[in-house]
Design a protein around this nucleic acid. Structure first.
Lengths: 199, 199, 199, 199
DNA sequence: TATGAATGAGCCTTCATTCAT
DNA sequence: CATGAATGAAGGCTCATTCAT
């Protein structure tokens, strides 16, 4: 093994872990398998991460930050309703494009809830806030804070629901249809909070 | 008598498994622990269920049909929008009243997806259909089939999203607030599909 | 493996453990080696003893009781001094005849002191009392209790010292010589507490 | 400077090892812990001592010579009996004042016996001779060589026995009482070899 | 020389499952 | 039928040591 910085090594293991979890599930993501996926001796894993849990926490954290990056890829100039709907489309698009990551994230969420509930809660709330802020950046001035919060939370609700649904049926077409319905519901919700357009 | 004894035993194990999963998580729901919770010798478990997987499938199935029973506890005489919203309230009420079962269900869902995807898919779709039918029984004649399907699916989306959210933050008050927002979104969706009331 | 009672199995493992400790030392008495010595699968060891520690405690206890059995093989009709000296000779004879057991006992003593001090203390004191009682049975009426206690404790002091010495030099002849000197010192101590013979 | 630095480092590691052994036991005296106790990088340990064994031998040697320094703190002008007894008191006093060192010494003795028996034997015999010589310096001319040897060996026997006893019960008062009895036995032994005082 | 990085070997323990009674 | 006894396979982790800089 080339002598690389510890940080680089950490990233390798995190990546390998995501891969293994996606392929075999958290339950079967053993240290041996992860080490093999990273093409490293088992002991090296424990040199970089003291315990398997520590590794998993790192993975969970890194995974939970990913989908939020797609929140800002929404074009400007849309109405609030259209903006919220488009955001939902974007994150759904993210996970349907990265099924492995999405799957791993879901399972790791429950794993972390069991093993370090406070951490899971904290990271979840960070995600919620990030969503709220992204929404606020785009349409904040056109929606009162309470409506903003309600909208972002519902967006996340629908996102998680769609993730579960897609996990269950695995049908991409159906996912798209359901996403559109969800977008519609979300848009209606935003509209009900917004002043009538043009008025 | 022998038959009955065996069936009773199955139920005992299923119950014990739910309890153990709720308390320790699927990952730590070992056969030993389950047998202990059922107050039975370990070998008996394998006498009744050939493998641990077989037991878990049975548990998954039994768990997944539970929340649907709350779908029919919706009063008559409501508008379609109010009916859908009330249904969502009912199922959320179910899982907030039975946190153990809800938690176990979530985890088992992902477990089954890994170990017998087809079965998980099938049971999920049974759940979806049950929801659609319950909705249809109440407001079917006032909503066209496509709208009915969209509504029931969105209901499930929101349900799953709320379950995840509650699992993450564990705050009952917040769950209630989020549920109301979700109900509002759902009601708006139904309204948009319904003919204007009174027209 | 024949289905034998759990107690029999325990004894097998205890025996095997003594053998392995004698041969490789406590530090290298691994569960694998012990299982191999007992000609059993590794998992069987953990079926009978929950942990390695539990096994070691059992071994320590069984070992500590052994040398005491040689305390009663002292002929009657001796003077108190001769009796005490003869007892010391007997226990030294025991460990020089069973070097493995003696060695294992010494090492396990320190191991137990580290891992379960109270237990080590308790078992040690049981040994002390057994010695005192054996001495009392033979010459109790010819020695006041305080002298009896002092004698038995000194006997044990010399016993432990001789065990260490023999462990260090491994010279049987020298052990015998040292034992005789020790017996002499012990006898003199007893005499100093006894009424002058013949007086 | 370089030389001195290296030697200093050796001493640091030896000290740290004693501390770690006293605190955690030989079995848990890992190189990592020792390096940490010495506040040095792990690799440095192997830079100064080729192997862990080499380090432990050095520690064993340094520890074994310590208690002998207390042998010469015996006042002059005592009878041979009193001198021998006082010597025993002194060494017992040493280890009861330095329980850590005494504990570490005991454990290291058995460790060395396992890993390099010849060395352990040699160092033990050096200790025996040092005792004999210290005794000889004080009362050599008043005791024939054979008696001197017998006395010094018995002194060591009692010393080791008392160390074991104290390790087992940890009761300082009891240790003192047992020490006095041992001193008495030792004194009687010396007396029996000495010409009657004043004759 | 000095040390962070890396690792092969091995340890204790647990698990789902089967066997023998 | 029912169950105590038994086990192959695997898992997470640690250790003394060496490598590369």
């Amino acid at each position: 093994m080339a002598r690389v910085g510890a940080d680089l090594r950490r990233q390798d293991f995190v990546k390998a872990t995501v891969k293994v979890i996606a392929e075999h599930g958290v339950a079967n993501a053993t240290t041996r398998r992860i080490a093999a996926a990273a093409d490293c001796p088992l002991a090296s894993l424990h040199y970089v991460f003291r315990t398997k849990d520590e590794l998993f926490y790192a993975v969970y954290e890194s995974l939970f930050t990913l989908p939020q990056q797609s929140l800002d890829q929404v074009p400007a100039g849309l109405t609030p309703s259209e903006t919220a709907a488009e955001m939902l489309r974007q994150v759904v698009n993210w996970f349907s494009t990265n099924p492995d990551l999405a799957r791993a994230q879901s399972e790791l969420f429950f794993w972390t809830i069991r093993n370090q509930p406070e951490m899971a809660t904290k990271i979840y709330s960070v995600g919620v806030e990030a969503t709220e802020q992204a929404l606020g950046r785009t349409i904040g001035n056109r929606l009162d804070p309470a409506a903003l919060k309600a909208t972002s939370r519902t967006l996340i609700l629908l996102f998680d629901g769609l993730l579960v649904a897609w996990t269950a049926h695995g049908d991409l077409e159906r996912l798209k249809a359901e996403t559109e319905t969800a977008c519609q519901a979300l848009a209606l919700l935003v509209s009900s909070h917004s002043p009538a357009p043009g008025s």
